[in-house]
Design a binder for these strands. Structure first.
Lengths: 332, 332
DNA sequence: AATAGAACCGAAAGCGCTTTAATTGATAAT
DNA sequence: ATTATCAATTAAAGCGCTTTCGGTTCTATT
């Protein structure tokens, strides 16, 4: 099937390409009757503008690149949903990139992004990637960060203040004199974990108490579950804080294996809320981070950046809610 | 920062653009010393080819469109991961589209896909979308379907035979004289559910038994949980089959609320395996569908389609495994 | 009826690349 | 030394669109 071009439409309607271009873009003045003539030609031929050619002529692609760690996590999915929904409104396309750890692969990703001449890039990644960012910044790409704010506030970002969330929780528990708090720690989410630690630390300092516990676990469910089964044989805590829901589940299951009752003997709270949190028993208490909104707001900011709308602030903090369910006892 | 074009490189290296083009594409003959000269110029200027211009000149974009229902499901995430991994190998980009129910929105999606001049489209969607497909086919897009095969085998597809899986399960239970089987049914996954029903039906026919039960539930967790709590007050089944893990969890939780023991008094099996299946208690028995592979294979097929490699068969069936965990008793 | 000004439209250049056909330069054959 | 041959390179056209700059046609005014 021969692709129909703007040229064919112009022929069919007996006008020049310039005119056809004007009616498809709809901005400039075209007389009503010629507009109709052109519309009809478009309809008749089934003409659809070639976005690639438009991209070349306009020097923009109405496409933005989204970089995420892995698509399989619930949060990532929600972020993508939010992002896509507002992208749709503003008629942007999203090309998806995943980054694994290797610096080589990251470079390749960046390279591809640059080649593809997207209009901007949105990054959701728990690791600090300052170097890669600077490469992107050299090319003056509009960038929006999801989840972690940069110390360098030249980059727009949307995030939730995990530090504060952890502080609030720790504070509440210390106030109730439940001082034996542990943080589950893996190496996969260094930024998030470091924020959690900071928050808890601050609470301990203010309460003039010291020493909470770090529990380093392997980075997948199965082995961390096994590890924790052993751990609980000779350790007890009032509260265990985890980052991900899977870690909380490993904790709860391991505890139960050791006849440690959750929440009566040990409370568990995680920092991520997925739909599974209320499907499991005991239902998981957690900080509810508005993942969908993170994505949606990030994309909205991107459109502002691209259309030169004013940004009231570069760093947007979304608020969280603490959702106490069955795995913990204290309300905030 | 002024974007550096192939022209700048040509100037810098004192050759024509044609030569530069040849060295970046690496196929045609260029004398060693001029190749090096050009490479150096590229390096020095930091030149990165403009994929948009290439796309226009070559009439292909090395981009393929992926259409999914929603990104937030675990399966979808896995599919995306598989797809991206092989896309990376073959240097394709993926632009992501979600389709909600509305036909209008679907049309808009198709429209956007066509405008964007992607090289092909991969669709994962439980609803039959024959009409939209035919529109896509008019434009001769290479299409790969994930999950559901078309009666019309002109379209390539990768799928798992859910009908057979359900048949196998029903068969095993009928053989054990556990005849009281129910299928949980929602309206969100018509295709998958219809396959399940067919399989169970076939098993009943062969066993010369009749009547299994349909339990129609609302389409979200919360209300189906509430509904099932009521349902269990005056209904009992030997086996309950659900499509999604969330439905199985709703079933188990509702049963437990009514003091129905799973699996002793009622067994539960679902057709989708997510990492949560082994994190919850009782651990969920399920058909393990290789979601990651579905995505990976689909993308691989797409590359074959695009490079005119021979396809041994248009419809590729991946095999599943039954993973008995704690929510059911019979092995297959 | 003549004309200024506005409204509308077309020609052509340009976006950054690929690729074919033509040209150059070098080498081998006569 | 001259020509035929071949490898390496270039010039230029084309991919499908946007947009500036002029030109043409209307409309309104006197």
């Amino acid at each position: 099937m021969k692709r129909v071009t703007i040229y064919d439409v112009a022929n069919e309607a007996n006008v020049s390409l310039a005119t056809v271009s004007r009616v498809i873009n709809g901005l400039e003045i075209v007389r009503e009757d010629t507009r109709i003539k052109v519309q009809e030609a478009i309809e008749k031929l089934g003409y659809k503008p070639n976005a690639v050619a438009q991209g070349l002529a306009l020097q923009k692609t109405t496409t933005i690149a989204l970089v995420v760690p892995e698509a399989s996590f619930n949060v990532t999915g929600q972020i993508i949903n939010g992002l896509l929904d507002v992208a749709k409104i503003y008629k942007y396309s999203i090309v998806l990139h995943t980054t694994t750890e290797g610096i080589l692969e990251i470079n390749e990703t960046i390279e591809n992004i640059i080649k593809s001449r997207v209009d901007g890039v949105i990054i959701y990644n728990d690791k600090l990637l300052y170097d890669e960012l600077s490469e992107l910044k050299r090319y003056q790409y509009p960038i929006v960060l999801i989840g972690n704010k940069m110390s360098d506030d030249s980059i727009a970002s949307v995030f939730v203040d995990i530090e504060k969330a952890s502080y609030d929780i720790a504070r509440a528990y210390l106030d109730a004199n439940k001082n034996n708090i542990a943080i589950i720690e893996d190496r996969k989410n260094p930024f998030a974990i470091s924020q959690m630690v900071k928050g808890v630390e601050r609470a301990f300092e203010e309460a003039n108490k010291n020493s909470f516990t770090f529990v380093k676990i392997p980075s997948n469910y199965r082995s961390s579950y096994e590890f924790l089964k052993g751990y609980f044989k000779d350790h007890r805590h009032d509260l265990i804080l985890t980052h991900r829901d899977s870690q909380a589940l490993a904790t709860i299951n391991a505890a139960s294996e050791n006849n440690v009752l959750v929440p009566q003997e040990c409370e568990v709270i995680c920092m991520i809320d997925t739909k599974y949190n209320s499907m499991v028993r005991p239902q998981l208490s957690s900080i509810v981070i508005p993942s969908y909104d993170l994505g949606a707001v990030a994309m909205r900011i991107m459109t502002k950046l691209l259309h030169n709308e004013a940004l009231s602030e570069k760093e947007i903090e979304l608020s969280y809610v603490f959702n106490r369910r069955q795995s913990s006892l204290i309300n905030l």
